[in-house]
């Protein structure tokens, strides 16, 4: 194997290790949200330091790669993509940490009726599925799968857009549950962010494999419609 490929593989492996850490944060976050589990929330918050260390390490590896290998063409696009995927992964980690902080404010699990009405858990599962599929797309260099991941974000946005109205109605009927409903709305907002961040990562996979820029394209199309 070429030396440059060995370096790229090391970079990719490091990124996947970080991906697994963030996966753990998101997956535990689901249980923590469901059960108002403070202990689990603490673990998620604690993991953030480890994720940050990966972020710094990967940034450094990319910097060294640029300096020592002066990559071009597909190599250049790969490192650029790794750098951006790293940033997005770190942010997803932050988002999971943010949700954990909301969990810590809960003294009991969310009202099942509210969870059902807002489709929050459906949204959570969808976000998790996107996150995991995106990892497979990266491992297999599968741009078709990356494109499918981007499409999944629509469902998340749909749930997010409806949540305001649903929660307003719920609050009118249950004025004693304001803090709880607001926390849930915040978590929905965070999940919407996770969808966007996974979308960014999927776009980077398409960029480095196909040399095509897909980000910001859909917005333009929407304007034309």
């Amino acid at each position: 194997m070429l030396h440059i490929d060995e370096e790229l593989n090391r970079l990719r492996e490091k990124l996947l290790e970080m991906w697994d850490l963030v996966d753990y944060q998101l997956t535990s976050g689901r249980d923590a949200v469901m059960n108002a589990d403070h202990e689990l929330a603490d673990q998620i918050i604690k993991l953030e330091r480890k994720v940050n260390n990966y972020d710094i390490k990967i940034d450094r590896m990319c910097e060294n790669f640029f300096a020592l290998y002066t990559p071009v063409a597909v190599d250049l696009r790969t490192v650029l993509a790794m750098l951006k995927i790293n940033t997005n992964l770190e942010r997803i980690g932050d988002t999971a940490e943010g949700m954990a902080h909301f969990v810590k404010k809960l003294d009991r699990p969310f009202d099942p009726e509210l969870v059902e009405l807002t489709n929050m858990m459906v949204m959570y599962d969808q976000a998790l599925a996107m996150f995991r599929e995106c990892r497979v797309a990266l491992v297999k260099d599968d741009t078709k799968l990356a494109k499918d991941v981007i499409k999944l974000d629509k469902a998340l946005n749909k749930i997010y857009r409806k949540s305001d109205v649903i929660i307003t109605k719920y609050l009118q009927a249950n004025p004693d549950r304001i803090p709880e409903a607001l926390a849930l709305l915040s978590i929905i907002k965070k999940l919407e962010r996770v969808g966007d961040q996974v979308t960014n990562m999927a776009e980077e996979i398409i960029f480095y494999r196909e040399a095509k820029v897909v980000k910001h394209k859909r917005k333009k199309k929407k304007k034309e419609d």
Binding site: L2, I4, P71, V72, A73, V74, D75, L76, R77, A211
Partner: peptide, 17 residues
């Protein structure tokens, strides 16, 4: 040429493969 060459032979050459 150095960011997104069209031809695979070009890509292989400029990336040292």
């Amino acid at each position: 040429m150095f960011t997104s060459p069209k031809n695979e032979r070009t890509q292989n050459y400029i990336t040292g493969r």
